[in-house]
């Protein structure tokens, strides 16, 4: 039994049909064509599919798309505005907060959620907030540095 699902994705209305068993992560990728939401484990452990749902950070693989019906989603594609990177994205490029980049959208969105509530996080707060995002490349040092640099940028702006 397919259902019509209405979402606001990155501030634009989006409607598509899906079976109830379709996960939000696949809905975003396959129906909405937003492939920046990555799939790493599909059991909520790696954080690559992290998005914001009604402003709250969630793992989109732990949610059926129907559960998100009528709600607002922010994906990595919604961060840069008018061709300009978001300060967090800039910081990740400048501080080398990435290697293969597969975990990066999730890392950036988790940082976004953290810095929205706390513009001056301690290293421990950063590590706690991003603890749900796995990265096998970086050893996380430069990711933490990127978040710190992003916080500085946001404080100044």
């Amino acid at each position: 039994m397919k259902r019509t699902i209405n979402l606001t994705i990155n501030e634009e209305a989006f409607e598509a049909e899906a079976e109830p068993r379709l996960l939000l992560s696949y809905f975003l990728r396959e129906r909405a064509g937003l492939t920046g939401t990555h799939i790493g484990c599909v059991i909520g452990e790696c954080g690559a599919c992290t998005v914001l749902l009604d402003g709250r950070l969630v793992k989109s693989c732990l949610l059926f798309a129907v559960q998100a019906d009528g709600r607002k989603v922010l994906t990595i594609e919604g961060l840069a505005k008018n061709g300009a990177l978001h300060p967090i994205q800039e910081a990740f490029v400048q501080q080398y907060g990435l290697q293969c980049g597969y975990c990066t959208p999730g890392m950036v969105l988790a940082s976004y959620s953290l810095l929205r509530d706390n513009l001056n996080p301690t290293e421990e707060e950063i590590r706690k907030a991003l603890g749900g995002n796995l990265c096998m490349c970086t050893g996380y040092v430069q990711i933490v540095e990127s978040v710190k640099a992003a916080a500085k940028k946001l404080q100044q702006s």
Binding site: G47, L57, V58, S113
Partner: peptide
């Protein structure tokens, strides 16, 4: 767990 699991 972590905040995003607690959010759900």
């Amino acid at each position: 767990a972590q905040p995003r699991i607690r959010n759900m």
